[in-house]
């Protein structure tokens, strides 16, 4: 111990803001995104067309809306694998309401409400009964889509009003779609929520040490419940957009989307074990995934090969910093 009279000075930060940004995962991901953009623009003459690029955003806008809420959920140490099934159930509910003559405003309200209720259902089992979220949501993944299958069977709901198609097919200005606007607004809301509010700080604290967070006076279960509600709500919004874009509801709608959402979140640098990750990372990851699938689509690459590509991209991008560190360690020794 040094002299008690001398006050120890502990600096606020060691690294400057520029250093932190430069060394971040997001910077690496952004470089990957730019590289993919450049490669694509050489690979296909159709790539650098404003209308084509606008179409390409549909590849990721709906998934990304859910991914933002999922990012918070995964950072807090939980997960929701039922999101695609929530879309199916919400879409089915809208289709059913349509049969009874619901108009566009009612359809939207029903879609969002079903989403929130499904989120509350998941949240109840996880936060009130204390069950593991991965098990609960694997269960509700089958449950929610199962209900849709019972209601629809091999049928499909069609005949959505033309005003309803605005959400998934409308344009705000020139090539900018309604979904793109929603994507931007939701990204900003979640970015602010996670990085600039007390709620976001609580999410990080819970993800790093749920016991410690509880012992620090954070209402852990309440925060987690809200996160499930938000994920349900986002699935509801995605259901409205997707149903509107497709113009019909089948029980197989959005099958497998939950894994693409989780992939996007992890690619965005969110630790699958919780505790760290950022919204800007998820935004860039959304663009990376959208650009890759769109670029490959222009080159007539079949869907199954595309999924191989996305898988390799995920593993590659995640392994890169580790390989980097190993190479650096070898140089120094």
């Amino acid at each position: 111990m040094t002299d008690a009279t001398q006050t120890r000075h502990v600096p606020d930060r060691l690294n400057s803001r520029a250093t932190r940004i430069f060394k971040s995962w997001e910077a690496l991901l952004l470089a990957v995104a730019i590289a993919i953009f450049v490669i694509n623009s050489f690979a296909s003459p159709y790539f650098l067309s404003a209308w084509n690029l606008s179409d390409a955003t549909f590849n990721f806008t709906e998934k990304a809306m859910i991914a933002f809420a999922m990012a918070l959920l995964i950072i807090s140490g939980e997960i929701d694998l039922s999101v695609a099934s929530i879309i199916a159930l919400a879409s089915t509910a809208m289709g059913l309401a349509l049969q009874y003559g619901a108009g566009t405003p009612e359809l939207v309200i029903i879609g969002l409400t079903v989403g929130v209720l499904c989120g509350a259902f998941n949240g109840f089992f996880v936060t009130v009964l204390g069950l593991p979220s991965i098990v609960v949501t694997i269960g509700t993944m089958s449950l929610f889509r199962g209900i849709s299958f019972i209601i629809l069977g091999d049928d499909a709901f069609r005949g959505y009003p033309s005003s309803f198609s605005w959400f998934g097919q409308g344009y705000i200005y020139w090539v900018f779609t309604v979904e793109m606007l929603l994507f931007v607004i939701i990204a900003i809301i979640y970015g602010v929520l996670l990085h600039k509010t007390n709620f976001g700080r609580a999410v990080y604290a819970i993800g790093n040490n749920p016991t410690g967070a509880l012992f620090s006076g954070i209402r852990v279960q309440r925060v987690k419940f809200i996160l499930f509600l938000l994920t349900g709500l986002m699935s509801g919004i995605a259901a409205v957009c997707l149903t509107s874009r497709l113009g019909s509801t089948r029980p197989s709608i959005a099958t497998g989307m939950e894994l693409e959402v989780v992939t996007m979140v992890v690619l965005g640098g969110v630790n699958i074990l919780g505790g760290s990750g950022t919204i800007p990372g998820v935004v860039i990851a959304a663009f990376v995934m959208g650009l890759v699938t769109f670029g490959l689509g222009l080159l007539n690459v079949p869907g199954i090969v595309m999924s191989i590509f996305i898988g390799l991209l995920l593993i590659g991008v995640i392994a890169l910093p580790r390989l980097w560190a190993m190479a650096a360690a070898r140089r120094t020794s």
């Binding site: 606020d12 700080r201 604290a205 790093n208 040490n209 410690g212 505790g275």
Partner: peptide, 12 residues
């Protein structure tokens, strides 16, 4: 386990 939230910075 209960006292500090390890993973978060000191100030947080």
């Amino acid at each position: 386990k209960q006292g500090a939230v390890i993973g978060l910075p000191i100030f947080q």
